Amino acid sequence: MTKVAIVGYGNLGRGVERALAVNSDMELVGVFTRRAPETVATEGALVFAMADLIQQKDKIDVCILCGGSATDLPQQTPELTRDFNTVDSFDTHAKIPEHFAKVDQVAMENKTVSVISTGWDPGLFSLNRLYAESILPTGTTYTFWGKGVSQGHSDALRRIGGVADATQYTIPNQEVIDKLKAGAQLELTTRDKHFRECFVVLEEGADPEVIKNEIVTMPNYFADYDTKVHFISQEELNRDHKAMPHGGTVLHAGETAPGVHQVIDYTLKLDSNPEFTASVLVAYARACARLANEKQCGAYTVLDIPPKYLSAKTVEQLRVELL
């Protein structure tokens, strides 16, 4: 049994609890939160204060970190990796090399394992980009997200001063996708591929023009996209924009000979982004524990880990059932 602690209990933490319940080789030690434990209602998990985490060290094989990428994980992952094996879903693509280097140094110094940037993008989509480009080196890879709610982008909106609540949708350019599936190879800018649409509830007295400008110019999140911002009431946001659908597509258009077109198409359609992301985190928590049992240490990404480490099945079963 791999014994797991959930650190943070928002949408992602709840998803991890549900995912652990259907993985018979994983055991949930408890949820660790910065909130008052008595105020956190789980689906059966024990709840502890963050200050109690270190006291449970001998009972925990892996901590699954469920904070946000904007401010939580850059601090929390290296901090907790000093004492624990960790898995996170850090998803600010431009900052992954920096995050990896920081966590790797801590993990190497303390002989722990940390699997960073798991989920579906970065994560499963990263693997599919690697496979596609390796198989069809003469070609181009395109990644599209949505239509769906981005947890990371919504979290970034909610951290803006004057924003009470917010939801952000990523919307792919379907016309471009159809051309690529037909075998076209296009040179696309970030702005060509997606739109972003934000629904924002303002705190009393906040200036909508100031908030809008801060959103559309935010680096790594909105500055490179055509972004629409709608200011609405909390009631409307709760009614129409609190579901968590998402998905996306990795397309690779290439040739194996002049004029011989090949298209690789990998698509996800998700009713619940956080629950699916949580399921990926749990699979990589299993891999993290296995690496630690082998006395490995350092930071890893999905690109570094053999697929067999993700499965609860034996390698003999995998060869019979999946090959």
Score class of each variant (00 low, 15 high):
Glu236Trp: 10
Val62Lys: 06
Thr277Val: 09
Ala94Gly: 09
Leu46Gly: 11
Phe199Asn: 04
Leu46His: 10
Val115Glu: 11
Ala278Tyr: 01
Leu188Glu: 03
Val302Ile: 07
Ser154Leu: 05
Val216Asp: 01
Glu187Lys: 15
Val282Gln: 00
Glu204Arg: 14
Val31Met: 04
Thr92Gln: 08
Ala70Met: 07
His252Arg: 06
Asp91Arg: 05
Arg129Pro: 00
Ala36Gln: 15
His246Leu: 09
Gln75Phe: 08
Leu180Asn: 06
Ala283Thr: 10
Asn85Thr: 00
Ile96Pro: 00
Gln75Pro: 02
Thr170Cys: 10
Ile64Asp: 05
Lys242Met: 10
Gly152Leu: 02
Gln234Tyr: 04
Gly139Cys: 04
Leu12Phe: 06
Lys228Asn: 12
Pro122Gln: 04
Asp104Arg: 05
Leu12Cys: 07
Thr71Met: 11
Ile96Gly: 04
Val113Pro: 12
Thr77Asn: 13
His93Tyr: 14
Glu204Ile: 12
Trp120Arg: 09
Ala94Cys: 08
Gly248Gln: 04
Val22Gln: 15
Lys95His: 15
Gly30Ser: 01
Leu251Asp: 10
Asn273Gln: 12
His246Cys: 10
Phe125Ala: 11
Lys295Asp: 14
Gly15Ile: 14
Asp121Pro: 03
Gln174His: 13
Val115Asn: 07
Gln317His: 08
Val201Leu: 01
Asn213Thr: 11
Ser126Leu: 04
Phe100His: 06
Glu38Val: 01
Arg159Cys: 02
Asn173Gln: 10
Thr256Glu: 10
Pro37Cys: 02
Phe32Cys: 07
Thr77Ile: 02
Asp304Gln: 04
His241Thr: 02
Arg239Pro: 00
Ile232Tyr: 12
Ala132Cys: 07
Val22Arg: 15
Asn293Ile: 01
Ala45Glu: 11
Glu133Met: 08
Val115Cys: 14
Gln76Tyr: 05
Arg286Asp: 06
Lys269Tyr: 09
Asn293His: 11
Tyr300Trp: 10
Ser233Phe: 06
Val31Pro: 05
Tyr309Ser: 09
Arg35Gly: 14
His99Lys: 12
Arg129Glu: 09
Thr249Arg: 15
Ser279Tyr: 01
Asp121Glu: 12
Thr77Glu: 09
Tyr225Met: 12
Gly146Cys: 06
Ala312Asp: 14
Glu175Pro: 07
Thr138Arg: 15
Gln185Met: 15
Leu323Ser: 13
Leu291Ser: 03
Ala36Pro: 12
